[in-house]
Amino acid sequence: MYQALELFFVFFKIGTFTLGSGLAMMPQIKKELVTRRHWLDEDEFIDIVAVTQSAPGPIAVNLAVFLGLRIAGVKGLIATALGSISPSFIIILLIAMLFQGIQNDPLFVAAFKAIKPASVALILVPVFTIAKRTGVLGVKFIIPVIIALLITFTPLSPIYIVLTSIVIGILYYGQKNR
């Protein structure tokens, strides 16, 4: 029970202070669960990141729910789902009810001009952490670069990348180990 509560607060905190995309939350989630609490190791964390990218819906929620379930079962799932969703819910309701137009406030606008590029950097961090850990840094890094360009400049849906990667993984590594 205690662990589930702690999970709730970890995700609530991350949900309250991380901006932009669910992907930008990854470095902080790793820090809290892997580095600080040792609830799972880095390789398993990366596996879970990979799996949750292949599920539909908001990535932050996918990641939170999988981690909650893995660390503390159904209680963990409930804790991380509520923890990751409720900060958004509360903050957005407050804005919609009380602070309409906050996105035009000059101080707010100025702060966000810098926060946006910083958030992009936070998304780039897991790219290199995972690449390093899985040995795709170096010449092989051309593969993720091609995928990234395809995703950015063509209307190709990420699900096809996910499915193709799985099939290629099974065929390529299956053959290699034979």
Binding site: G20, S21, L23, I46, D47, V49, A50, V51, Q53, S54, K116, S119, V120, I123, L124, P126, V127, I130, A131, T134, V136, K140, I143, P144, V145, I146, I147, A148, L149, L150, I151, T152, P158, I161, V162, T164, S165, I166, V167, I168, G169, I170, Y172, Y173, G174, N177
Partner: peptide, 22 residues
């Protein structure tokens, strides 16, 4: 296990793509 190995390479590309799009 093999599916995971392939998936991780793909996911690095997807996350890089997400950054690129921003």
């Amino acid at each position: 296990k093999n599916a995971f190995k392939g998936l991780k390479t793909g996911v690095v590309g997807l996350i890089l793509g997400a950054a690129l799009m921003l």
